[in-house]
Design a protein around this nucleic acid. Sequence first.
DNA 1: CGGGGCTTCCAAAGCGCTTTAGGAGGCCCT
DNA 2: AGGGCCTCCTAAAGCGCTTTGGAAGCCCCG
Lengths: 346, 346
Amino acid sequence: MNLKQLAEALGLSQTTVSRALNGYPEVSEATRRRVVEAAAQHGYSPNARAKGLATGQAMAIGLVIPVSDQQEMVNPVFGDFLAGAGEACSALGYEMVLSVVEGDEAAVYRSMKARGSVDGVVVSAPRLGDPRPALLDGLGLPFLVHGRISGYEAPYSWIDVNSRSAFRRAAGFLLDLGHRRVGLVNGEEIFDFAHRRRRGYGEALAERGLPETADLVVQGEMTEDFGHDSARAMLARPDPPTAFLVSSLICALGVRRAVEELGLVMGRDVSIVTHDDALSYFQNGGDVPIFTAVRSSVREAGRRAARLLIGRIETPGAPHAQDLLEAQLLVGESTGPAPRARKTAP
Amino acid sequence: MNLKQLAEALGLSQTTVSRALNGYPEVSEATRRRVVEAAAQHGYSPNARAKGLATGQAMAIGLVIPVSDQQEMVNPVFGDFLAGAGEACSALGYEMVLSVVEGDEAAVYRSMKARGSVDGVVVSAPRLGDPRPALLDGLGLPFLVHGRISGYEAPYSWIDVNSRSAFRRAAGFLLDLGHRRVGLVNGEEIFDFAHRRRRGYGEALAERGLPETADLVVQGEMTEDFGHDSARAMLARPDPPTAFLVSSLICALGVRRAVEELGLVMGRDVSIVTHDDALSYFQNGGDVPIFTAVRSSVREAGRRAARLLIGRIETPGAPHAQDLLEAQLLVGESTGPAPRARKTAP
DNA sequence: CGGGGCTTCCAAAGCGCTTTAGGAGGCCCT
DNA sequence: AGGGCCTCCTAAAGCGCTTTGGAAGCCCCG
């Protein structure tokens, strides 16, 4: 059933039917009701492509998922982020198209723009000095960054967690418990969020007049293995850390594994604070979390990201929107005062 | 830059340019080269909507992600599945559109069909007696099921892991190590894959003349918590299991946590075999996996799913394709012979 | 009674592409 | 010389919608 057929069935012109369905005022209420009813009854909904062609809008936003080769990682937060963004999109009548790309993202954006398949894109996992915003501005494709880009000066819209503040508070919490050697198991610092987390950690140390020790900081892909191996290595040093600040829950599980392998008890011998994206399939316990964590829901971030982006698309002239989420510091069972005499690993 | 402009710039008709770019034979090689070069130089690519309108094809496949309310889970394998499907789609010139929906999936499919926004869909996480295939057949929307549907009799295309065989072998492996009480921590058995896994487990027991004990089987949402709580409960019984067969790696982490909380040693006191979707961010160790596992890459499944679906879209008449993946049983460090005298939990 | 101003509808153009139907040329054959 | 058949190209219709530019009918007012 298309518009023409519906119009014929109703004995009206296509114009009138179209206007009735799109809420234009030039049609009487009686006619509108009649049209809407008939549309529902025949299960008519306008062809998205034809509508898009006519209006010049795709009613879709794009997400680009960068993956490297076979073995590389798909960011585990994507699922929840997508779910959040998807909710918001559906609610606003938009679709989400995603594009998995290894290598040249620029080409993907260019093609999205040229083919008109989306009205805007979400830029995720921005790196330091990320070239994408400049590219997108150049293309005239609206975008929203999930995260921020330290180097970029032009105004842009973003949503982000206050990583620096979160990690400053988390590190401060550990230091206030008496820990003096706090290991930082960070994400790769080419990513802006990891960079900010590192800064927050450094600030907490500096505020207390403590030096930042290079051998207590590592960065890498946030897998369980990476957490485990990093913690093992640090705990094997002559002066091992008594606490860890970890960049993701998955990674923290690795750290815990390392701690337990050495016969140490988490929360007594070694404290752990982790960032927690509140992933739905990986809940960090109930009322009292297993891990003390700085928590911020990535699903909520997804919802807001989509809303902000769509806002930008629909009113391009409006000033850029920013949304800074504060993480909650939730105390769980993985932290406690620094041990007096540190038991050394066997 | 659109077709008209490009044609003008070249001094050719739109027809010729279109044909040159789409590889039709009615245009000389010299002209084709000229056209292709000019297109590349001007960065022309055809407008997807206009092309879709003209051809009646969306060049897109749909994935529907069902989520329930706020607190419900987003399947953690979606990220990797999407990555795989995305790879295949890009390679074949298709886009992937996803739709997050809580509640009425039927409405989403109907609207996708009516609006013509996709050429086919992937049906994921099928349940027993799932109504979706019948609905989609009725709508005439091509689909591919990731999984199988035990009740459905009409022919359809699917890709699936041989869950029954995998779990039969996994359970058999444990039983052959001398374990007599093997707990099954399964996914929700409304899902077809969980149902099949349960059957495989039962078959392994039956083959060895052992009874299936109801108190050793649980099903639920496969979270870390669920694994933990289920294992705790089973291990607290008077005659606790000496081994667990677990439906996901995330869940297995919970089981391990329960085991270790009780002061037991995994691989010595309690053996664990888990299903492993080979999620990129959750690698189960290196050469010698941490967990003994039946492994099957969900990313590969995504790749194949997209390819099969696109095949169906492009040659609708062809017979339905099926693809049954066998999982590998990889022995890691979480399994060992059944302990002689079981140490009871404190 | 005629014209201005509503309200309510319609015909047709246009969005950017594909594709059908057809038309120059050139070459060969009779 | 003229017809037939290639090869290479073009004009124009059409995909299903929105939207511009009226136009018909009606009411009111002078």
